[in-house]
Amino acid sequence: MKKIDAKGLDCPEPVVLTKNALKENKEIITIVDNEAAANNVKKLATKLGAKAEIKKIDSNFEVNIKKTEKNSEKDENKSEGKVYFFKSDKLGKGEDELGNVLIKGFLHTLLELDPLPQKLIFMNSGVKIATENEDAIDSLKKLEDKGVTILSCGTCLDYYGLEDKLDVGEISNMYEIVESLNSSNVITI
């Protein structure tokens, strides 16, 4: 539960602070000192599909905000970005060496994208990118720092014996991966 003290701040500060906090928190209490600000914060929450309640406490107002399941799934900032699905550790078919070079360049270039990708998903030999390819891992870490979700298939890591070597991102399952591929704008590499 994140608390935002927005007492004494003029419009639109309480709304902006709440909006930013909602990107990373599922439950927020925003405290303001006037009813107009409380109503505005509640409007924001409702517009973003969250539930909000206003409680008057002494001379202040607390707005309790809870994200519902649906909107906690897609982070507002990332919603525009695409999902990239890597099913191999090389880019394209041809010489392995070239495929390796290309994948490094590709990931490095992804960093320049606006908006950034929403998710990168690694499957089959693709998981080797997030475990063995040092240059690629470097780019992936930078992407992760910027809020990009990086998922590697658990079954695949297990198969290649790489589970302990996962250096960036999270281990994911078939359900989550299928959900991501189903619900989003996907590019397959």
Binding site: N39, K43, K47
Partner: peptide, 13 residues
Amino acid sequence: YAEMGLVPGGAYD
């Protein structure tokens, strides 16, 4: 913007 709560205090007054 109004739906997002960017309504100035003056509007409530």
